[in-house]
Simulated scan of single mutants.
Amino acid sequence: MDIMQTSDSSQYGVVENSPYRFPYNKRVEDGNLGASWYFSRKEIEENSLSRRDGISLKKESFLRKSYCTFLQDLGVRLQVPPVTIATAIVFCHRFFLRQSHAKNDRLTVATVCMFLAGKVEETPIPLKDVILISYEIIHKKDPGAVARIKQKEVYEQQKKLILIGERAVLVTLDFDFNVHHPYKPLVEAIKKLKIAQKELAQVAWSFVNDGWREGLVARF
């Protein structure tokens, strides 16, 4: 079903001008994208809620890659392990399998996914750090952003947005945090095959990382 909207967003805990546009007390699930997180390329492209809202496949692909790049930058700045970054990317991909880019700000959702991934992977990130650094990255072209986010009113508004967003992501993911990363099997395969060439191993590692950006983690 399509995402429901309401003129009285406060009913669902949504702040005014929030990037989240769906009621949290409803399970958001498209009729053709069920409980499984793995779909064919055709299913993903044809059943995309973003497409129904007028966003082209090319545009959606750009948006997907942009939030992956953002999460990579955010993770490096926050000094979290690669697996935490990967989990955040998976959560973000899953969110937009069930939600539309037209109704949810991708970078705010990505920030929430990083905060949540830190908890899931037992690499907790202080909420304050997530808020400050994500805001700086999002507004990196604005020289006044660093000083502005340190203002109490601006900071509290961002904090409220992230906490509301966390609830939105949790509901959309159905509280399913089970993520299987390919890093461990890749390392085991490299050892088993006795691949000594460092360059070849690096290429394999790069293929895995590129897969995150392309959303391959949601395909079979």
Score class of each variant (00 low, 15 high):
Met1Pro: 06
Asp8Ser: 11
Gln11Tyr: 11
Tyr12Trp: 13
Val14His: 07
Glu16Trp: 06
Asn17Ser: 11
Ser18Phe: 02
Tyr20Arg: 02
Tyr20Ile: 01
Arg21Met: 08
Arg21Asn: 15
Pro23Phe: 08
Tyr24Phe: 15
Asn25Pro: 00
Asn25Glu: 10
Asn25Met: 06
Lys26Trp: 01
Arg27Trp: 01
Val28Asp: 05
Val28Leu: 13
Val28Gln: 11
Glu29Ala: 09
Gly31Thr: 14
Leu33Glu: 13
Gly34Tyr: 07
Ala35Met: 04
Ser36Phe: 05
Ser36Asp: 15
Tyr38Pro: 00
Tyr38Asp: 06
Phe39Ser: 05
Arg41Asn: 13
Lys42Gln: 14
Glu43Thr: 07
Glu43Pro: 00
Glu43Lys: 13
Ile44Gly: 04
Ser50Glu: 08
Ser50Arg: 08
Ser50Val: 06
Arg51Ala: 08
Asp53Lys: 12
Asp53Thr: 04
Ile55Asn: 10
Ser56Val: 04
Ser56His: 03
Leu57Ile: 15
Lys58Phe: 05
Lys59Ala: 10
Lys59Asp: 13
Glu60Val: 03
Glu60Phe: 01
Arg64Ile: 03
Lys65Asp: 08
Ser66Lys: 03
Thr69Phe: 03
Phe70His: 01
Asp73Gly: 04
Leu74Cys: 01
Gly75Tyr: 02
Leu78Asn: 01
Val80Asp: 00
Pro82Cys: 00
Val83Glu: 05
Ala86Phe: 05
Val90Cys: 13
Arg94Tyr: 14
Phe95Asn: 01
Leu97Gly: 09
Leu97Glu: 13
Leu97Trp: 12
Gln99Ile: 03
Gln99Gly: 07
Ser100Asn: 08
Ala102Glu: 09
Lys103Ala: 06
Asn104Pro: 04
Asp105Thr: 01
Leu107Gly: 04
Val109Asp: 01
Ala110Trp: 00
Ala110His: 01
Thr111Ala: 05
Thr111Cys: 02
Cys113Gln: 03
Leu116Arg: 00
Glu121Thr: 15
Glu122Ala: 04
Glu122Asn: 08
Thr123Tyr: 08
Thr123Ser: 11
Pro124Ser: 10
Ile125Lys: 00
Ile125Asn: 00
Leu127His: 02
Lys128Glu: 12
Asp129Glu: 06
Ile131Met: 05
Leu132Ala: 06
Leu132Thr: 13
Ile133Ser: 02
Glu136Val: 10
Ile138Ser: 06
Ile138Phe: 06
Lys140Cys: 12
Pro143Ile: 04
Ala145Arg: 10
Glu153Ala: 15
Tyr155Trp: 02
Tyr155Ala: 04
Glu156Met: 15
Glu156Asn: 05
Gln158Lys: 11
Lys159Leu: 15
Lys160Ala: 14
Ile162Thr: 06
Ile164Trp: 05
Gly165Ala: 13
Glu166Pro: 03
Arg167Asn: 12
Arg167Met: 14
Val169Ile: 14
Thr172Gly: 09
Asp174Gln: 14
Val179Trp: 10
His180Gly: 03
Pro182Cys: 08
Lys184Trp: 05
Lys184His: 07
Lys184Ser: 11
Val187Met: 06
Ile190Trp: 03
Lys192Gly: 12
Leu193Pro: 00
Ile195Ser: 02
Ala196Gln: 15
Ala196Val: 02
Lys198Arg: 15
Leu200Asn: 06
Ala201Thr: 12
Trp205Arg: 08
Trp205Met: 04
Trp205Thr: 08
Trp205His: 11
Ser206Lys: 14
Val208Met: 09
Asn209Met: 05
Asn209Ala: 10
Glu214Gly: 07
Gly215Arg: 03
Leu216Met: 03
Ala218Glu: 15
